[in-house]
Design a protein around this nucleic acid. Structure first.
Lengths: 303, 303
DNA sequence: TGGCGGCTTTAAGGAGAACTGATGCTGGAC
DNA sequence: GTCCAGCATCAGTTCTCCTTAAAGCCGCCA
């Protein structure tokens, strides 16, 4: 009989790649992981790992068993969720991932939830939007709050539940004393080209979703910024706009909150969507749904 | 994290109904089962059993978790089978069920298989045809050899693989010195009515599949035996026919093997099918397939 | 070449889990 | 009333599993 904890270890090892990282993830010493994987090999009767002194990697059999393990663990988690749904108490450990920019909004609601349910143990980390889905499916997080800047938010994948929390327009963020700050209608393409040409363009580094979306829009209106400053974090960009350092594309809500910044609407406005991701197997878990509800309250006040 | 062994215990309890029987099935003391189920309740956070002093029964939650357990265990077994298929060695414990009448034919082949593979541990029991499918699905047996006397053998159910080993005609078994023993063509309905009226009719007790099938045929030709002797076991019936005690419906092969018995064909001959049942999750397990192969060799020499 | 650091395994020991056997309880059968 | 089947609990022993400590291997760098 294969042991469920050992399958969990194998599954995590398949996701992380080293015994040390697996141990860190699961809160054990590397020695324990090594021993448990050896025991699993003994049980299965097959070599699951190719071991060298400084690297362990999965064999074909190990990879296959890890895939089976994913299915088995999902079934077990579904069963556990159902039992938790039966008692209905919000308790246990829930790991939450949140992108940098939304953490300040989310944190107080999670803290309140934890105060309301002392048995609940919320563990929050920061993760980027790109890797979040895989991390949730890999059971590294039970709930992930991310944003998506494409026109079409990701669909529900295998085992993944996608919850849309908020959708808001992207605006052109200008310093309050900018010549166009008083304009009521949306910025025209011509205005945008002129601004981009004269001002420093503030944006996220390449690889960020917001950067790609902004570049798409700029290309569409045929504007190419001659001067770019790249900073990570939308809050920083908003603050920089306020100091007069340049202009940027920002979510409407963020531009509105930042003192010294005015948001000018855009024609055919791009949008960003704030999403929450959970596994379908935990959909009924009261603790997870409570955290999801908290995220909804924290972040869905936009339209 | 729910424990797989405990889920197995719950699942077995759901099938058997008492803690003692569960313990006997799994080879533990009742005390161990009681403690493990209590631990599972603690893990799940729900009451799974309603306990009185002399009886424990599942609650709704317990029933539901037992159903989940069946799925989880099936997934685990499938994974284990895949690993065993990878190494390909015929080893481990295989529990085989066989109906009474076929045991003599099957036993030597299983014994030979066990001699050829010392790591293999075949455990054989006798079980009736009616309950075998449920027992295989409940994991009490990995392989069951049964017979079926209906026109249409059972189809593959959820998780059950049905292997047809042999199909043979039912004949009218007569003592060698009977007046009709030399007849070459099949027995007519009129002959049958006459024989039934004059001879003692030998058949299995009510509830057996062979009895039901025989009665159906007798009813169809409008023959009702005034004198019945009911004995369990087709071999006994064959031996009784040889002594001249009466006549019976028997599978052709059995009638042929029995000295002093002649088998007279029947018009629109009923048939019996010998089937092997396995779980689909163990389909790839080399040990199970080897046992199945042995059963095929032992029993499929008919047409 | 020698030392350092990351990754791994092995060995030893201790904490906890789990099984057994004994004991006690309950309710139905005789 | 007495017996019996079934279940829970308790104490004790065995076994599992995790941690710490030690050591090996390999790449990297001085």
């Amino acid at each position: 009989m294969l042991d469920l904890r050992r399958l969990e270890i194998l599954h995590r090892f398949a996701a992380r790649g080293t015994i040390s990282a697996t141990a860190a993830d699961l809160g054990y010493s590397p020695s324990a992981i090594s021993q448990q994987l050896a025991a699993l090999e003994r049980e299965a009767g097959v070599a699951l790992l190719e071991r060298t002194a400084q690297r362990a990697s999965l064999t074909d059999a190990g990879r296959e068993l890890a895939e089976h393990a994913a299915r088995i663990l999902a079934a077990a988690e579904a069963a556990h969720s159902r039992m938790r749904a039966r008692i209905g108490t919000v308790s246990g450990r829930v790991t939450v991932s949140c992108i940098h920019a939304l953490a300040p909004a989310l944190a107080p609601h999670l803290a309140a939830l934890q105060r309301a349910h002392p048995e609940l143990n919320v563990v929050a980390h920061e993760t980027g939007s790109v890797t979040a889905a895989a991390a949730v499916l890999d059971r590294r997080y039970d709930l992930a709050v991310i944003d998506d800047w494409s026109e079409h938010p990701p669909a529900e994948g295998t085992g993944l539940s996608v919850h849309r929390l908020r959708r808001e327009d992207i605006v052109l963020a200008l310093p309050t004393d900018h010549a166009l700050a008083e304009q009521s209608g949306p910025a025209t393409a011509a205005q945008l080209r002129k601004i981009v040409h004269h001002e420093t363009w503030l944006c996220a580094p390449v690889g960020q979703l917001s950067r790609a979306a902004g570049d798409r829009y700029l290309t569409a209106v045929d504007a190419t910024p001659p001067r770019r400053w790249e900073f990570e974090g939308l809050h920083i960009l908003a603050a920089l706009v306020a100091t007069g350092a340049g202009v940027a594309f920002l979510p409407a809500g963020l531009a509105q909150e930042q003192a010294g910044v005015v948001g000018l609407p855009l024609a055919a406005s791009p949008q960003r969507t704030i999403l929450a991701l959970t596994r379908t197997t935990t959909r009924e878990d009261p603790a997870v749904t409570a955290c999801l509800q908290a995220a909804r309250q924290a972040l869905s006040r936009g339209r």
